[in-house]
Amino acid sequence: MKILVQGKTEGIILKSQNPINFLGTVDKKTGIISDKNHELFDKSIKNSILVFPSGVGSSVGAYTIYSIKSNNTAPLAMICEKADLTVATGCALANIPLVIIDNEKFSSLKTGQKILLDTKSHNPIMLL
């Protein structure tokens, strides 16, 4: 496990098996996934613990992450399987906790689970 952006928060998991291209897939104002081909289409990522494999696409997508944070429509935290610089720097700028986990842990997380994420704890991801 790698902690890319520190923080502590409690919330409900919203999980996607698809990667997310923040530029063009996520509505900057509402935090709703606007790409019809995405499995989270029409769902809001606001105040979720967003679990997805990684970010893809333009590095400008980092600005989208910053936008949703400014508009109070951002996830409480993000958990990815692979580190990418767009999501890493976007979360760092927006101060959204970001953790990278291995495949086994990634498979074990499910939409609807309530967790406590605390990057300073010995067990940073705790099921509640």
């Binding site: 890319l4 610089l85 890493a88 760092a92 700028l93 970001l98």
Partner: peptide
Amino acid sequence: QMAYRILVATGEAT
């Protein structure tokens, strides 16, 4: 603080 958060996130990622 924000700038260092970005550097640390980038550093940990790479």
